[in-house]
Design a protein around this nucleic acid. Structure first.
Lengths: 203, 203
DNA sequence: ACGCTTGTTCAACACGCGCTGAAAAAGCGC
DNA sequence: GCGCTTTTTCAGCGCGTGTTGAACAAGCGT
């Protein structure tokens, strides 16, 4: 006990943190949460840092600024190729429903996910809009419609995007009942056929 | 010329404006424009006043604050009852397409309209979200599904809302091509059937 | 042991926001 | 024409934002 090391008693004020505790990761996690809840403009660097339990200046130290933190936080850890293959595995029948179920699964679990964050940011933050476009056309439905080989693939992808975006907005952002708390089966049965027609049917 | 009246020479600085020129109306018009383009948070009282050509303090004088100005600007001058009657006039056949055409007509003309303003504000501004909910359920589709007499009217109204919201987001906010510049016929043919099923078909 | 690098906090800057209060000019009643 | 009211501008307050620089502590190489 006599040794002074790591006494940390009460109010240490400056200096390096005792050990481990990856600040960067904590910041990223907090950023995801706050960006999803508040959107880019609504989220403040200070609030994110507070949730992560560190000083706001850490955002600049680790990421270089709010904008870069947003970009890093939105970098989603899913492999789109694998996802598409999985969805297409059982064949094109019931594909629409499967997509809806998949999205609702992710969203309901993480209370939104990165897509909701982008959706909340898109209005006033052009980079978020750009990400959103890229995400829908290239990652999400671009590959899907390409594999299905239908005509007018870009239009089909955009229409599928409008389904997903509309559903996410009404269910998670606007929170319009009874869609906001409807169970997965109901939503999938209702919205699935639209996607199915957009992907495999005539326009 | 000798009389001093209305000389206004160069840099008059304070005081009442010469005549007419309804400041309140100019403010309202500018507010609609800026709220549509930027959403509630993105729009600043100063920029609205600048477009209206008056001082920012006029917003407080005429409306009491930004919030009240937003509410006043969003008060839309359409009669929902008449609109519903007009849409239902030719019978329930082709109703979905007619709705889409109607919306696109208004939106493309006024580059969005109040609904886009609300859509851009909804993320971070709870009053806008409340307005949106009211608008969809009560004004827009509430009456419509009630008149059609189908089962689960609230769910149908919410689903219709998700169609319109998704379309508006992708076409006007995210601006995803080719949907953003697709002609009315294409969009109506693609989206109309979804609304039709939501309104008159099985879920 | 000592010094350099790195992680962290704190104080503060510059800016933009919504809003307020006082002053000034125009119009109105009489 | 004179006062009272209304409309308008201006200066600025208080606050919250993202960002910065200095100070300081912990660890690491040697």
């Amino acid at each position: 006990m006599t040794e002074s090391v790591t006494a940390t008693g009460g109010g240490r004020r400056k200096g390096r943190r005792p050990a481990g505790e990856d600040t960067r990761a904590a910041l990223l996690e907090a950023a995801r949460q706050v960006f999803v809840e508040q959107g880019y403009d609504g989220a403040t660097v200070r609030s994110i840092a507070a949730i992560a339990g560190v000083d706001a200046a850490m955002v600049n130290h680790w990421f270089g600024g709010k904008e870069a933190l947003f970009a890093a936080a939105m970098r989603i850890p899913v492999d789109p190729t694998a996802l598409v293959d999985e969805l297409l595995g059982p064949g094109p029948d019931g594909l629409g429903e499967r997509i809806v179920r998949r999205f609702l699964g992710v969203w309901d679990a993480t209370s939104g996910g990165a897509l909701i964050a982008m959706l909340r940011s898109v209005s006033s933050h052009e980079p978020a809009a750009r990400m959103m476009r890229e995400f829908i056309t290239r990652v999400l439905f671009g590959r899907l419609v390409a594999l299905l080989g239908a005509d007018r693939p870009e239009l089909r992808a955009a229409l599928c995007g409008s389904q997903i975006v509309g559903l996410a907005m009404v269910r998670y952002v606007i929170r319009l009942e009874p869609l906001a708390s409807a169970d997965v089966d109901t939503v999938a049965a209702a919205v699935g056929p639209n996607l199915q027609r957009y992907l495999t049917g005539p326009l």
